[in-house]
């Protein structure tokens, strides 16, 4: 089974040289720590920055320079800054190669719910609906089951949707999954030490798994 950093590490292997990538809050943010040496990636922050650098050194924080999580950050050589409309313009026009975000639920036809729980204070969708509606390549990074032990890979989402029919790939602590165009989750890799049976038990949606699904190589 993978921990959060393990999920991030496995997802980092999906990033190709030359990609422009948008990372959501939570596990996706950790992916930045595991981008392989020699792979050149430009991180987008949807408040209006391409080329997000690491956190500033103590004492060098700039209140005018933050990321979409409102954290102080830095720029890098080659960074560019633009307004919020252009930022979502490049997302909508599919100039961003890969979006990695968290989810509360994903359905077997690729619907995603990650912004609202009825009865709880709703904070808003931020840029999530724009990202999932437009990105050509979205990977969901999430825990396989929720805190109540219920599967987050479902026949259909129970929570209010963020987007429909848009998720193609999911990485959880148990494995790597494709969402098939005809519906259903296809198990591509098992996490180290996890059996197909365990994954089947934790997956409420339709799961397709060969008997000899390979164990993933992390790192």
């Amino acid at each position: 089974m993978l921990d959060k950093n393990g999920i991030a590490k496995r997802i980092a292997k999906e990033i190709k040289d030359g990609y422009y990538v948008n990372l959501g809050i939570g596990i996706p943010t950790l992916v930045a720590n595991y981008i392989p040496e020699g792979v050149n990636v430009v991180l987008q922050s949807e408040n209006g920055l391409l080329g997000m650098g690491p956190f500033p050194f103590e004492g060098e924080e700039d209140p005018d320079l933050i990321n979409a999580g409102k954290q102080t950050i830095t720029t890098l050589p080659g960074s560019s800054i633009f307004d919020s409309a252009m930022s979502f313009g490049m997302i909508r026009a599919q100039k961003i190669d890969l979006t990695i975000l968290g989810a509360m639920e994903v359905s077997e036809n690729g619907d995603i719910a990650n912004w609202k729980i009825p009865g709880k204070m709703v904070k808003g969708m931020g840029g999530a609906m724009d990202l999932v509606a437009s990105a050509k390549n979205i990977i969901v990074a999430m825990q396989h089951v929720n805190k109540a032990g219920e599967s987050k890979l479902l026949p259909s989402c129970t929570l209010p949707l963020t987007g429909v029919n848009c998720i193609k790939k999911i990485v959880t602590e148990l494995g790597v999954f494709d969402v098939l165009p005809e519906g259903g989750f296809k198990l591509l890799e098992r996490a180290p030490g996890v059996s197909v049976d365990e994954i089947r038990k934790a997956t409420a949606g339709k799961l397709y798994a060969d008997d000899d699904v390979p164990e993933m190589v992390v790192g």
Binding site: F55, P56, F57, E58, P63, D64, I66, K70, Q71, T72
Partner: peptide
């Protein structure tokens, strides 16, 4: 004032 919401830094 330019208040910072999430002060995130790394040490040298």
């Amino acid at each position: 004032e330019k208040r910072i919401e999430q002060r995130t830094v790394r040490s040298k």
